[in-house]
């Protein structure tokens, strides 16, 4: 690409950036705060339920909470409600573990027509896969560093 064209591109990109309609950051953040906060409060209630009702210890209660929240996220996705929550909640519905469940169910459900192995089976992990890859790898790395420093 010649220099003149590059300059033209640069100018256009800056111009587009300047003129582009922007997301309403304040509104988005307030909604994310509320939706994320509510989901975590529900998580706290589930956690407390696990501790008081099922007599679980802290670790068990965490696992219990994760399982229940994932169930809720998967169910709401299946019922077609989670994408509506996501439209308003933004990161407030993506970041909690229910959003992780949404990212697992939605592609799997969408690609069911491509069959149960390459549709549902592999698409379950189209987004969750990278999360597990990076999360688990990082944890192994942390464990090993901890081992050598100890």
């Amino acid at each position: 690409m010649d220099v003149k064209q590059q300059k033209l591109n640069k100018e256009y990109q800056i111009y587009v950036q300047r003129k582009m309609p922007k997301s309403n950051l304040l509104r988005d953040c307030i909604l994310a705060f509320l939706v994320g906060g509510i989901i975590c409060t529900i998580g706290q209630a589930v956690n407390n339920l696990g501790k008081s009702y099922f007599n679980l210890n802290t670790e068990e209660a965490s696992a219990f909470t994760a399982i229940v929240m994932i169930f809720i996220g998967a169910l709401l996705t299946g019922l077609g409600v989670y994408d509506d929550i996501g439209k308003y909640g933004g990161a407030g519905s993506v970041v909690p573990i229910t959003g992780f469940a949404n990212s697992i169910v939605s592609p799997a459900m969408e690609f069911k027509k491509e069959g149960y192995v390459f549709g549902v089976g592999s698409k379950l992990f189209s987004i969750a896969g990278p999360v597990l890859v990076y999360g688990i790898s990082a944890s192994v790395l942390v464990g090993l560093i901890y081992f050598f420093l100890k």
Binding site: M20, P21, K22, S23, D28, T77, G78, G80, Y82, D83, D84, I85, G86, K87, G89, G90, S93, V94, G99, N102, S103, V105, S106, P107, M109, E110, F111
Partner: peptide
């Protein structure tokens, strides 16, 4: 883009 039921926000553009 994304699956239909994925909870994503669409930017204004």
């Amino acid at each position: 883009r994304f699956p239909l039921e994925m909870g994503t926000q669409r930017p204004p553009t």
